[in-house]
Design a protein around this nucleic acid. Structure first.
Lengths: 197, 197
DNA sequence: GCAGTAGGTTACTCGAAGTAAGTTACGAGC
DNA sequence: GCTCGTAACTTACTTCGAGTAACCTACTGC
């Protein structure tokens, strides 16, 4: 099998097993076996167990970025921008429960450089939010804009975890909940009031 | 040395080393050596490496609960309650940077039952918030109250991480930021408007 | 039909978690 | 002031999994 295809397959299998059992409880032998290949191949392509984990996270991150970018491209107001971005995020989670669990739980902890990868995802999100906020309300305190972006990302992530425990809550409702709490606080900072829907 | 005292010492040392190097990179031999005792003693008292980690988290959780409970005991309005609770949390983080890093980064992932402990801390927080919200606004949709509590906890946690990167931001300012974003959204749900400060 | 290389394997080393079996310190009862 | 019981502790293992060295094989271009 050609390298690129084999790597993709390895990532898919690894993601699944990591999410199922946790990073620590998963052995490279097990992943290799489920891929149908021997352990040194994993090391050939990913260097280490940590490298494999980072590969998984990185792929998810790329997907999320692309999906989010597409979703918000048509937004005209900060409110619409926020809503579309949140919705894209929750939909991504909904479609990728496993990789999400992996990202959120497995990586954050164990492995310093994996943590950097995860941090990179958040950076991606906070930068986006911070940038849009600043572009719509130029006179906002930059520190406060940063704090705001962090708050939104934290709230969203946590609600995504909660959503898993509450099957009746889908992406749309989750988006509503976050917007309900967060939007009034932001609207006060905006130069002109957004027209109510 | 008597058991209780030795256990406390072990927890202190373990917390420090875990926070310094990460859970995975820390060996039980190293902890044992820094405690000045042999490895089987750690196993005698904590059962496993995971058990030791859980012990660390559990102790921090207890401290946080006690501190928060004391802080909010005098709150008269939901706004004051929220503000005091947030402040207590940020102050706790500020005083325990190391253990906080441990809780948030090291534990969450690697070890399923450690994750449960961390989840327990969040549960503690969300329950408290949910309860107070429900008591002040009885007619609120219970699902929405839950979502709100999750949002606050997520936002707070994330901002605590951010605070570490921004030394100029202390507990008081962090509390303000969270309140600024979140309070207007909550106030709309309350039966009577809270009097503005 | 042969050379070079992409894709693959077997069979190891080494470090760290966890354990079995035994040793020492010390207070209570006679 | 000796001895029994037990709490606190150690040495010396086993086991398991990450990572590696060395070797094999089939295909592609010439």
């Amino acid at each position: 099998m050609p390298k690129a295809q084999r790597m993709a397959q390895m990532l898919t299998v690894a993601e699944e097993i990591f999410a199922e059992q946790g990073y620590l409880a998963t052995s490279m032998d097990e992943i290799a076996e489920r891929v149908g290949v021997s352990k040194p191949m994993l090391y050939e392509y990913f260097g280490s167990k940590e490298g494999l984990l980072i590969g998984c996270i990185h792929r998810a991150r790329t997907e999320l970025r692309e999906k989010t970018a597409a979703a918000i491209s048509g937004a005209a107001s900060p409110e619409e921008f926020l809503r579309l971005g949140l919705l894209a995020f929750f939909e991504f989670i909904d479609e990728h429960r496993r990789s999400w669990a992996l990202l959120r739980q497995e990586a954050a902890v164990a492995v310093p450089s994996a943590q950097e990868e995860v941090e990179g995802i958040r950076q991606q999100q906070t930068d986006m939010i911070g940038a849009v906020l600043a572009s719509f309300t130029p006179e906002i305190d930059p520190l406060e804009a940063e704090a705001f972006a962090e708050i939104v990302v934290g709230a969203t992530e946590r609600l995504a975890v909660w959503m898993e425990r509450r099957p009746s809550v889908g992406p749309a409702l989750a988006t509503d909940y976050v917007m309900n709490v967060i939007w009034p606080g932001v609207a006060r900072k905006l130069p002109e009031p957004a027209q109510p829907a």
